[in-house]
Computed example of a mutant assay.
Amino acid sequence: MSRPKTQSKQTARKPAKSRKQPYLIGAAVLVVAGVLGMASYQVSAPDPRPAVDGSGAAAASDPAPADAHPELTGLARRDAKDPLAQGRADAPVVMIEYADFKCSYCGKFARDTEPELVKKYVDDGTLRIEWRNFPIFGAESEAAARGAWAAGQQGRFWQFHAAAYARDAKEKGFGGDRLKELAKEAGVPDAARFAADLDGEAAKAAVKKDQDEAYALGASSTPSFLINGTPLAGAQPMDSFAQVIDAAARTAKK
Rank of each mutant, 00 (worst) to 15 (best):
I136R: 07
F109D: 00
S224G: 09
Y215R: 15
R193D: 02
P189E: 15
A203H: 13
V118D: 03
D177Q: 13
A202V: 08
A151M: 08
Q159P: 09
R128L: 02
K108F: 05
A148T: 02
L127P: 04
D124N: 14
V207T: 08
N228H: 03
L182K: 00
A162T: 14
A219E: 13
T126Y: 05
K204G: 15
S224P: 02
A202G: 07
A166N: 07
A196E: 14
E181S: 15
R132P: 08
F160V: 02
A150V: 12
R156C: 02
K170R: 15
F109R: 03
T126A: 06
A145G: 09
G173W: 10
A162V: 08
W149A: 00
A191S: 15
R167W: 08
R132C: 08
R178I: 12
A192N: 12
G229L: 10
V118H: 06
E201R: 03
G107A: 03
F137Q: 06
L217C: 14
R132N: 09
F157S: 04
N228F: 02
T126S: 06
L198R: 02
E171P: 01
K204L: 13
A110Y: 07
L179E: 03
R128A: 04
A169R: 12
A162N: 10
F174N: 07
W131E: 01
F134G: 11
D197M: 03
G155W: 02
D124R: 13
W149D: 00
A164T: 10
A151G: 10
P135F: 00
D190Q: 09
I136C: 12
G125Y: 06
R156P: 01
G173C: 13
E116Y: 01
R193G: 07
D210K: 08
G138C: 11
S224C: 08
Y121H: 05
A216V: 11
G173E: 15
K184V: 15
Y121P: 07
A169T: 10
P135G: 00
A163R: 09
K204R: 15
A214N: 14
K120E: 11
G200E: 00
K184F: 12
F134E: 12
G155F: 05
D177H: 09
E114M: 07
A191M: 14
T222S: 15
E142T: 10
A144R: 10
G175S: 06
G125H: 04
E142C: 04
R178K: 15
A191Q: 14
A183C: 14
P189Y: 12
G218I: 12
A186P: 05
K209Y: 00
F157T: 04
V207N: 10
D112W: 00
K209L: 04
F137D: 01
D212R: 12
Y121T: 05
A186Y: 00
A186F: 02
A203D: 08
A148Q: 07
F225T: 09
K204N: 11
